[in-house]
């Protein structure tokens, strides 16, 4: 028996897809997080973004999140996301979008360019859900940072308490600087 289509649900799905496109999400994110067909998403994408979606694979590596600058961005996003999921009963994708907006707002207030895209942020949440990455408490400042899945928290120090030797040296304007 075919599932009866709900107009209300359909409009919710479209609304969610539009918000994601406006935040700059790739088509793969939309396919995974909404129930709309590929054809409809493609049309919607062109209508909202005014261009065809980028092609090619999504960034798939966990390594990126562990490099110095991206790690700080990812940690700020993930802390915000976890806060939102703890205090309210939002659906995951809605919490990702809300956390992403708060993240860009905060990062811009610090005078730094947002390095994390909504697609990367979504990947990060999936990686942590699947235990491919985790959050570890820094032994110095007590903040939670994105880390390898089984990081030893006794000796873990975050990239801001113990920046690597070359950190912040080659950074162009809009990056994180140490001095």
């Amino acid at each position: 028996m075919a599932i009866q289509k709900s107009v209300l649900n359909d409009s919710k799905q479209v609304e969610r897809a539009v918000s994601l496109i406006q935040l700059g999400a790739r088509l793969q994110v939309l396919e995974s997080e909404t129930e709309l067909s590929y054809e409809r998403l493609l049309r919607l994408y062109k209508e909202v973004a005014g261009r065809s979606p980028s092609k090619g694979q999504l960034p798939f590596s966990t390594e990126w999140f562990l490099t110095w600058q991206p790690n700080i961005h990812a940690s700020l996003f993930q802390n915000t996301y976890e806060y939102l999921t703890k205090v309210s009963a939002m659906e995951d994708i809605d919490a990702i979008m809300a956390a992403y907006r708060l993240y860009t707002e905060q990062i811009e207030a610090c005078g730094v360019e947002p390095l994390l895209s909504i697609t990367r942020a979504w990947r990060l949440v999936k990686f942590i859900d699947n235990n491919m990455l985790s959050m570890t408490k820094c032994s110095k400042c007590g903040g939670h940072f994105v880390s390898e899945a089984y990081e030893n928290s006794r000796h873990f120090e975050c990239g801001l308490c113990s920046p690597p030797a070359r950190a912040g040296k080659g950074a162009s304007s809009g990056g994180i600087l140490l001095h």
Binding site: N79, T80, Q106, G143, H179
Partner: peptide
């Protein structure tokens, strides 16, 4: 800390605060 940049320490504080509330 070893970091001496306004924007970066503010960023550090933001991460800690977001985590504290969680």
């Amino acid at each position: 800390t070893k970091v001496d940049n306004d924007a970066t320490t503010k960023l550090h504080a933001s991460i800690l605060m977001a985590g504290r509330f969680a």
